[in-house]
């Protein structure tokens, strides 16, 4: 059963140095507040897993949280580069970053295999690309029924998955809707799971198309209104596109980045 606790308590209870951590959310419902709490708590040597690293892994990489990144698209959507990710890969700043690079189709199938209790997934993908040459977790496999050559990718089973959702009830059942990405799979694939939510309600009335994660599939729930900003929570907030554009200039320079992180993350307390 998930316990409803503070964000600080949730993160410190499950995230340890050296862990593999997936903070998922595909453009929508990205768990920024949780990432900021990890930055403040200072866990190190993390393997960060996410389809689209987005600004939050740019921030975590630039602050030295990560030694590895498993991902499929590392840009600032509609804007350009993730400068902290690029600086880590191109110049090893603030430290070297090992990449394990996939496509979106490969990543989602790795989560599906992890959630399904299988060692690997099969897909039509990667054939003829150079990705298989640089990523050891992409292997050819022959279909035992048709002899067709396909691609296998290993399951992802993060030590911890973290998501942001619209709401939960007092028992810790979590409900999310709109673009739900691969959060269900990421939570069910993980050894431990944390959800931050916009609000706690007495009763979760059913919503068409919503994903419901039952309380016994999670460890902790923390209430963090606005915890997805500058991403958004459909029905609660809008994507802060201006901030995504502004991040380009903030993140381009190491000093400007560091100052921004001090002012907006390090020197403010965790949400109650």
């Amino acid at each position: 059963m998930a316990q409803v606790v503070s964000l600080r308590h949730a993160i410190s209870s499950v995230v340890r140095d050296g862990h593999s951590v997936a903070l998922e959310g595909f453009t929508h419902l990205i768990p920024y507040a949780a990432a900021h709490e990890i930055i403040r708590q200072g866990q190190r040597d993390l393997t960060l897993i996410r389809m689209t690293p987005d600004l939050l892994y740019d921030q975590m990489i630039g602050m030295g949280c990560a030694s590895s990144l498993i991902f499929s698209w590392g840009g600032n959507p509609g804007v350009g580069s993730l400068h902290r990710l690029r600086d880590a890969v191109e110049n090893g700043w603030p430290g070297p970053l090992r990449l394990e690079e996939h496509s979106h189709a490969g990543m989602v199938n790795r989560y599906v295999a992890g959630a399904s209790g299988l060692p690997f997934a099969v897909l039509r993908g990667y054939r003829g690309t150079d990705l298989a040459d640089v990523t050891p977790t992409i292997k050819p496999i022959t279909c035992p029924f048709t002899d067709e050559e396909l691609t296998a990718v290993p399951a992802l089973n993060p030590d911890v998955s973290v998501i942001h959702a619209q709401r939960a009830d007092r028992h810790g059942n979590v409900q999310l809707w709109g673009i739900t990405g691969a959060q269900k799979e990421a939570v069910l694939a993980a050894r431990h799971a944390v959800a931050t939510v916009e609000e706690i309600v007495d009763e979760l009335d059913p919503r068409p198309g919503a994903v419901l994660l039952p309380t016994w599939a999670l460890d902790y729930v923390a209430v963090v209104p606005g915890g997805a900003h500058p991403s958004y929570a459909l029905g609660y907030s809008e994507r802060d596109n201006d901030f995504y554009v502004a991040w380009d200039a903030i993140s381009r320079d190491r000093e400007t980045f560091r100052t921004w992180m001090e002012d907006h993350v390090l020197n403010i307390g965790a949400p109650a």
């Binding site: 959507p77 989602v108 989560y111 990405g181 958004y232 459909l234």
Partner: peptide
């Protein structure tokens, strides 16, 4: 939209499915 996941895409869509579903059932 600025991104492939802006809210307006979900609000105006015929349906919204998970990302595993879009790649496995619709594209593949």
């Amino acid at each position: 939209p600025l991104s492939i996941g802006d809210g307006v895409l979900a609000e105006t869509a015929d349906t919204v499915v998970s990302v595993p579903e879009i790649f496995n059932y619709w594209l593949q």
